[in-house]
Structures are given as structure tokens and as C-alpha cells.
Design a protein around this nucleic acid. Structure first.
Lengths: 154, 154
DNA sequence: TGACAATTATCGTGATAACGACTATCCTCA
DNA sequence: TGAGGATAGTCGTTATCACGATAATTGTCA
């Protein structure tokens, strides 16, 4: 099994270190999966980032959430949440309003349409991930999760 | 250790499935590491994608490589290699020329400057990855590599 | 041979990402 | 009370991504 990445990218020499090999495997695996997830989301006209924001906002109901807080909860960092939300608002998936108590803050909430879309996506996405990882086995999955969390813990 | 991701993104409910948890951990881990690598590369004015292309082209010396082949070897897919190479050519890191035998093909080669830059980057990057993963241990690293390759094998 | 498919690269265009600078508002404390 | 700093969000700009269409060249096969 090991050395699979080298074959995939047709590299002649072995990797300089196991750390590098692990890192590149990480990149490759994420890229592979993301492409499939993006393809699944595409017919619905939204990106993985948007999906992530919608999930966060659903969890924040009924209070809504400040822009900055949304950014800090996102799986992958986005340096300009404002315009991300601009686009989502233009599509009717979220609404925003100034907080009265602290007028610096803008509270974002998910709309009915956003909730509907999220619900519509849930099943296809679960199914896709189930398919993509069906050969891995629950024990290995848990171990993978452990190792990834360990890697981030540095 | 497990449940770390949920705390990181401050999610209340558990994940719907271990597959989803594994996938999101993958995204989060890659994002975390990529940010640090990008920060390391930034002073040199190049992105991870560029670095990857330079490494591929160094491995292709002295023959050079066709555009399409470069694309297929990249760790993360890029849908427009042409303009990626345009930019790298403008910075003097690569050169291109039409292949005479098959005039559809454009052969790209790394320049002296590209090689120099690559060499300059190697040590800092190795050091960074070594630091980021120093707490993981070689046995766990190998296991992580195995599991990632297994995950992609579906 | 010559029509048609396949391959390779390029380009037009609009959407998005990335980086800083900027404005508005609130907090702190002398 | 008011100056300075902290915080939240917005915006200007440039670079890059992403998608589809196009051009040039080569391969295939009746």
C-alpha cells in the first residue's frame, strides 16, 4: 500500500522525509475528496464554503451570529467573510441586520430558503461520503480521526 | 483526544457520521498546515502551487515536460495550467518552447533561477514540517500515511 | 485521401480569494 | 469627559480560479 502517492504523481525519487510524505498525502487526499464533494454540490449552485456557513448558521438559530464568529467557526479559513455573506445574501440564503445594542456588530441569520437548501443537500452528501469511504471500515476511520486530531495538536 | 474538532469549531451536536467527522478533520488539518506552509513561502513570493510545479519540473530535467503532464502530476488539481505557467514564466522561473515533432505540445523547463529558488526553499520547508509534526512520532506518521492512502483508494 | 474525432494548449469572461487600508463604534481609564 | 486603543465590519484593488469556447495539430479509418 505505501508508496501509492509516489505512483499517483509519478515521482521517481522517494520523499525526503516521512513528514513531507504525510503532508503531501494530506493535501492529495483532501483535494481528491473536495473535488467530488464540489461536483456533488455544483448542481445546487453552492460551494463547500457556502455549505459550511449555512450549517454554522443553522446551528446558531434562532439568535443568529456575528460575522467574526462565523469566520472563527469555519472549517477552512476565509479572509473576507463580509463579501462571502454579501453573495449569500444576494442569493436569499441569509439575512443581516445591525445589532442595536452594539452597533459595530452585524447579526447574520439563515433564511427559510437557506434551511430548505441545507436539508436538500444533507442526504446526497451523506450518501457521497458514505460511498467514498465505504471501503475504510469504522475502526480505521476512528483511527484516522485520532491521528488527524493528533497532527493538529502541535 | 477525540471530539477535538467539535471543540475547535464550537459545534454543539456530534457529527452525523464518522465519515463526515473524518472528512471534516481532513479539511481542517490540511487547512491548518497549508496556512503555515503558505506563510513560510510568502517571503519568497511564491505559492504552494508554484513550489509544487517547480519540484515537478526539476524532476523532469533535462527533458522538460508538457503542460498537460505537469497538470496530471500536481498534488492539487489546477484547471488552467497555461496561465499558471504564464505567471511563472513572467517571473523567470520557467521557460517554454513549442515541440517541433508534435507542434501541439509546449515543453516547459525550469530555469537556473527556478532551481536556485527551489534549493533555497528546501531547508526552511523541511524544518517547518519537522516542527509541525515533531510530536507525532514516526510510527504514527507511517500509520497516518497508510490510512490516507487507503482512504483515497476507493 | 479526406472527413471526423481526439489531443494539446490557449483565451474570454465572470466569480472568488487575498491583502491592506479604512470607517464606525465601543471600551478604558486617567 | 475625552483621548487612545480595541473591536467589528466594510471596501479598493490586484491576483488567481473556474468554466466553457476556441484554435491548432495530429490520429484514425472508411
Amino acid at each position: 500500500m505505501s508508496g501509492r502517492l509516489r505512483r499517483e504523481i509519478k515521482q521517481r525519487k522517494p520523499f525526503r522525509s516521512p513528514q513531507l510524505e504525510a503532508y503531501l498525502n494530506l493535501l492529495k487526499t483532501t483535494d481528491t475528496f473536495q473535488q467530488k464533494v464540489a461536483a456533488e454540490l455544483k448542481p445546487y449552485g453552492i460551494s463547500e464554503t457556502w455549505y459550511n456557513v449555512l450549517r454554522i448558521l443553522r446551528g446558531a438559530e434562532p439568535d443568529g451570529m456575528a460575522c467574526r464568529e462565523i469566520g472563527s467557526r469555519m472549517i477552512t479559513r476565509d479572509p473576507d467573510v463580509t463579501r462571502l455573506l454579501d453573495r449569500m445574501e444576494a442569493r436569499g440564503l441569509i439575512t443581516r441586520r445591525r445589532e442595536e445594542k452594539d452597533r459595530r456588530v452585524v447579526i447574520t441569520r439563515i433564511t427559510k430558503e437557506g434551511l430548505r437548501l441545507l436539508k436538500e443537500l444533507e442526504l446526497p452528501l451523506d450518501r457521497l461520503l458514505g460511498k467514498l469511504l465505504s471501503h475504510v471500515g469504522i475502526q480505521n476511520l476512528r483511527q484516522l480521526i485520532e491521528l488527524l486530531e493528533l497532527a493538529r495538536a502541535g
